[in-house]
Design a protein around this nucleic acid. Sequence first.
DNA 1: AAGCTCCCCAACCGCCATGGA
DNA 2: GTCCATGGCGGTTGGGGAGCT
Length: 383
Amino acid sequence: MGRHSCCVKQKLRKGLWSPEEDEKLFNYITRYGVGCWSSVPKLAGLQRCGKSCRLRWINYLRPDLKRGMFSQEEEDLIVSLHKVLGNRWAQIAAQLPGRTDNEIKNFWNSCLKKKLMKQGIDPATHQLISEVQLIKEEKCAENKSLEVPQLKGLIPAISSLRAHEPAFLMNDPYYEGGTLIEASRESADNNNYMIRPVFDSLPNFEFQSGLDLVSFNSNLLSNYHDPPRTMDQNHLEMSPHFEFSSMPSLTNFDHPGGTMSGSEFSNNFASRMSSLFFHEAKDQCSTNNSSSVGGNYTGFQMSSSVENAAFSWCSGENKLDCLFQYQVNGTSKCEELKPQGPWQEDQLHIGPVNSSSVDFGSFQLTSPSEDLTPPNFDIFQQM
DNA sequence: AAGCTCCCCAACCGCCATGGA
DNA sequence: GTCCATGGCGGTTGGGGAGCT
């Protein structure tokens, strides 16, 4: 028992964070970026342990946090993910951009659990409580008869529980091995539930046309709603605009306690970008499944010297492609955007944010045209 | 108004994994 | 291989606001 080793050495503050502390931490991270958390309190002038600073940043100060109530889609997604992942909040949170594991955990414990209970669903097993009761009684009877405990009664229940397991979970080592897992894999395949995460898979994100997590989820969840709800793919409560707070983005990689690695930053960047793509992609998918380039302009402009430049995406062949359209000397051109191998610090930077744009970073073209020296294009969303 | 209870949620705690010395 | 620092995660706690008596 006791405080963390990082807290033992010094008399450190605990409890709620004051606005002054928040300001100090925010200013520090904004200026120097996320590096070595253990050195942050000292360098930021805080009487807190590094862990506490990290938590405060992740759960509260981070600029890309979504605030406010959970939407119905988010709620449904949490329930469906919990069904297959259990209390693995971090993994659930990874599928909900802008939400933290802590937030989801609290939401689950305070609201969703009760909601499910009201509907007669056991929140632990996601089965009807009467069925759970039955299984318990079955177990009791087996124990009473002093036989070696059998799981026969449980296996069909668990199999049905996992029948709708999203395919992307198949890559999870947690799900490897065992006949039960294989059964669920087959079941998932047979039910055409193949889907891949599109949230954090940039730059190699892929998805199956016509399917998204929300619509998939609505199928999965139909048994939770009485009467069963229908989900119209064209009706999405999630905002198509990826929102940031007014807080500035990180601008500097120089860090007194160490520098931020490209991968650290690109992870964050990828999450933000792919989240943006996802929301835009859903809208595009619902109206246009063609793979043509022309009609898929999303409204993202490129700040560069190139004329009439536009950043767009198109779907086709189970892939989501990032395209950069521009004009040089009056001739329209189109390039596929890809990072050149792993993100490098000199490839990726977050630029200053002004009142009219949110900056998402920069790309380089992989196959530059002969008549165009590829600049570093800054991508931003018009506000 | 005061006291009490409930419960939400921010923050803490302990454990574990990982990487470097 | 061992030790240590650090980060990440899930479970838990308790401060404080809301609602009730």
